[in-house]
Design a protein around this nucleic acid. Structure first.
Lengths: 213, 213
DNA sequence: CCAAGAAGTGAATCGGCATTCACAAAAAAA
DNA sequence: TTTTTTTGTGAATGCCGATTCACTTCTTGG
């Protein structure tokens, strides 16, 4: 045996891998998937195109990992809120608010992750991500119904609808270029919609909300 | 001048154009945009690939037209319901129901039109379609608020959320392969979600209970 | 029937990009 | 240092399907 990876080497490799992922994420964030060709990622990571393939079997795999890890992160945040303090209604509110705010923070990234057309494999990962988001809301719904905060309802459908609702409402302002103005209202509007949809307002009224057109 | 299109010729051309559109629609319906290469469309329309370009400047243009005309049709149906008889709540219900049912009828087509990744131009058309769907709901919301059937709320956001909600709820069962079972429940669930979201149930209970709190 | 112009053909071209590969540089063992 | 193996390079390759184009076939008007 005449070669074994030294510790330092191992570290360097891991670091390269990270740098590739980071570069890919950054490129997507600044210009969507179009912007993120293998060549561009390589350049931005300080490697050659060929080298990428020592770390990822294909472009799709690379971006699936980018997407997935971003979603993991997002899910963790949501879960944290969902399992936190307070009644279900306020936690649900927190989740929607947080997601919306974070999405509006990095518009292009969010667009890419929510809606930008991309190849099949990436899209599958996206679909899966949506399902996972849905699951967070689903358990919140179940809990809320059990606690008597929400009326009985189909939780699977409700969860999907919630994800769809804020996603869609978020995309319009995001897709081309966002206007920063009205952000607070947007988030509030989305939250209000979701809470009403779930039947939360009926039993837990907070304060007069809703601006009218 | 030694050539002028006869009436018959004109008809044939128009017919070809229609056949191309129809073939394209059919191919999308049966296998998504992937399935619908120019070659395939041409073959299915009984023409050569090159001929397509006498009728459409590009593949994108062709499919944008396919998409747009399908959306036009859908919008017309919705508008019909939206401007029909009855109180706003029941018309809203009708719109959502109708859309959902029709989407579940032709799963692949709906998927392609709602969510399948495709090139930029097509996606823009899709986004525009969503906006147009949103507008139908927006005016319904305005009417409902004015009529006192719905509480005050942000109608732009609400409209977007409605579109997003049923769209998302529809896609999950559609995308891979739909189960026919549970369809009625699915549609009912979506409708219920939207009506609650809009605050319809609060003031207009299906039977009895005077409107306007 | 003929000439002129239009429509239709389909194989060749083209463009864009991921992926590969022959080779070079670097690292570990000897 | 030499050998062996791994990592890195970047130009060349491969692929795929839209688009083009030189050519054929059809239509029309004379």
């Amino acid at each position: 045996m005449s070669y074994r990876r030294s510790f330092l080497m191992e570290e360097r490799l891991a670091d390269n891998r990270q740098r590739i992922l980071k570069a890919a994420r950054a490129l997507v964030a600044e210009g969507g998937f179009n912007h993120a060709s293998i060549a561009a990622v390589a350049a931005s990571a300080g490697l050659s195109a060929g080298a990428i393939y020592r770390y990822f079997p294909s472009k799709a795999a690379l971006f699936v990992e980018v997407l997935t890890s971003a979603i993991d992160h997002e899910i963790a945040i949501l879960q944290d809120i969902a399992q936190g303090e307070g009644n279900v209604t306020s936690r649900l509110r927190g989740c929607v608010e947080s997601f919306a705010n974070r999405a509006l923070e990095g518009p292009y990234l969010a667009y890419a992750f929510i809606a930008e057309p991309a190849e099949q494999e990436i899209d599958e990962a996206r679909l899966l991500g949506r399902k996972r988001f849905g699951e967070v809301f689903k358990s919140l719904l179940i809990e809320g119904i059990d606690a008597g905060e929400f009326p009985a309802q189909s939780v699977d459908i409700g969860a999907a609808c919630i994800v769809g609702a804020f996603t869609e409402a978020l995309i319009r302002p995001i897709a081309p270029r966002a206007k920063r103005e009205g952000r607070k209202e947007l988030v509030e509007g989305i939250v209000a919609f979701c809470l009403r949809a779930v039947g939360a307002n009926a039993s837990v009224r907070k304060a007069g909300r809703g601006a009218r057109a």
